[in-house]
């Protein structure tokens, strides 16, 4: 393994950070204090972290409705994200975006998005910016198997190929779009197979294994930075919770979810491998876990006490000038 201990613990911390974010929100949502729709990323953390490990603040991502993980991985402050979910003034978007619209342009995040598939042309546009400005930065569109059937994605893929843009179409295939299975919704044998029809290279990887994601993305990002045009990645991953918080998930079997948590949990897999290879200890991982548990307790307590947006904020920031 080429990663240093420091890197390994850092990537684990980022994945664990996302997990704790989502588990905290899952727990706190039951108190009724978090308004709106929530779509949790638990089980998919290796993807956001394995991809963003290769990106800088000058590279862009476009996320989706299940976006908390992507935002944390790209470097947004989780404390301010929790504030945002509680609708508070200090939230990352001043409490005016909420879960589905967390963006952080200073970190190269074009935002989570409530419109399925919309990130694909937006990320393609950010890639166009890099090309026009003559930079070697790239952009990544995170989207799911559900979005893979949106016309947005097809049009963006074609544009990216013909204009040779440095954009990575990263499909997190968790097997179910809302409540409909991928085997029903996708006509092709695999989503990645579609890329060839657009003239785009593609890889299919294990999105529950951080190292599979990290290694694949090292090559894919280098391909795009070198000006070779777009790339398609399909990562097979798992979704531990429902489409949205409160989803009774009658379309899934309990055994399927239990099995995924037991055998396909990217955090457990990461820990076992790293401990097995003697690169870090259980105590070191546990210490990261307990630090994050404490941190999130603090974020939630603080958010619950934080100030609401000023009434005037209602009509502010619609335009820059008007």
């Amino acid at each position: 393994m080429s990663l240093t201990k420091e890197q390994l613990l850092d990537y684990y911390r980022k994945m664990r950070n996302i997990r704790e974010f989502e588990e905290t929100i899952h727990r706190e949502n039951t108190t009724g204090e978090i308004p709106g729709f929530l779509h949790l990323y638990c089980g998919e953390e290796a993807n956001a972290v394995g991809v963003c490990a290769h990106l800088s603040d000058d590279d862009y991502i476009a996320s989706n409705h299940r976006g908390h993980g992507h935002c944390v991985a790209k470097g947004s402050d989780p404390r301010l994200m929790v504030m945002e979910l509680y609708g508070r003034a200090e939230g990352l978007c001043g409490g005016k975006g909420g879960s589905m619209h967390i963006a952080d342009l200073d970190r190269g995040s074009l935002g989570a998005n409530g419109i399925v598939g919309a990130g694909a042309p937006l990320a393609t546009g950010a890639a166009l910016t890099q090309k026009v400005k003559g930079r070697d930065n790239v952009s990544v569109c995170f989207f799911g198997d559900g979005a893979s059937n949106e016309g947005y994605v097809f049009e963006a893929m074609n544009l990216a190929v013909i204009l040779k843009l440095p954009v990575i179409f990263y499909c997190e295939n968790n097997g179910v779009g809302e409540g409909t299975g991928v085997d029903y919704a996708v006509g092709a044998d695999s989503i990645a197979d579609r890329a060839a029809a657009f003239g785009m290279p593609a890889k299919k990887i294990d999105g529950t294994d951080f190292f599979s994601v990290y290694d694949a993305m090292e090559e894919v990002v280098a391909h795009c930075r070198a000006g070779n045009g777009p790339y398609f990645v399909e990562a097979e991953t798992v979704r531990f919770y429902g489409h949205f918080e409160g989803d009774p998930q009658k379309y899934r079997l309990k055994e399927e979810i239990d099995n995924a948590k037991l055998h396909r949990d990217c955090l457990k897999k990461f820990r076992s491998r790293v401990i097995e290879e003697g690169l870090a200890t259980t105590e070191e991982f546990d210490s990261i876990d307990s630090d994050l548990v404490a941190a999130y307790k603090g974020y939630v307590a603080e958010a619950k006490q934080a100030a609401w947006p000023r009434p005037e904020a209602l009509t502010e920031d619609v335009y820059i000038t008007y």
Partner: peptide, 18 residues
């Protein structure tokens, strides 16, 4: 290409990124 949804989205993404 004749691809309004795609190129308009690309223009929006380009505008939001500089």
């Amino acid at each position: 290409p004749i691809s309004e949804m795609g190129y308009m989205g690309m223009a929006v993404g380009a505008a939001a990124s500089g």
